[in-house]
């Protein structure tokens, strides 16, 4: 299965710093500021930081196959019922013995861009 056209549009939009910033803002406004604070949270975003699809193919697709559309070493992510908080926290902290913690490696903008990419996947 490939991405839905609307999702593809979202993907393209997610390349912009504006959207990444917007997601970050919504995240905070949504009452998620109590989440653990990674040390590099304030790292400035660059175009590479916020292309969720590219980030995914760099470091995540090794385990989450077909760009997260099917089960591989890691679970299928398309259509996940987990909420954004859960996904972001799992990216930050990982799962011992199964998934690395990326909270010290990725900026908050990058993590949110990856979450946005996961949300764009058609089940």
């Amino acid at each position: 299965m490939r991405s839905h056209p609307a999702a593809a549009v979202l993907m393209r939009i997610s390349k912009s710093i504006i959207l990444a910033t917007g997601i970050a803002l919504l995240w905070t406004l949504g009452g998620h500021a109590q989440q653990s604070q990674p040390p590099n949270q304030d790292q400035a975003a660059s175009p590479n930081d916020i292309e969720g699809g590219q980030m995914f193919a760099t470091s995540c697709g090794f385990c989450h196959q077909d760009g997260g559309r099917t089960t591989g070493k890691g679970p299928k992510l398309a259509g996940t019922t987990r909420d954004n908080d859960f996904l972001a926290e799992r990216i930050r902290k990982g799962k011992p013995g199964a998934m690395p913690a990326f909270g010290n490696a990725f900026s908050e903008s990058q993590i949110m861009a990856i979450v946005a990419y996961i949300r764009s996947l058609e089940e």
Binding site: F56, A57, T58, S59, G61, F62, Q65, D66, G67, G68, R69, T70, G72, F102, N104, A105, F106
Partner: peptide, 11 residues
């Protein structure tokens, strides 16, 4: 710190 650099999605 260095991260994986795969460059593809696969199944």
């Amino acid at each position: 710190m260095a991260q994986l650099n795969i460059g593809a999605n696969f199944k």
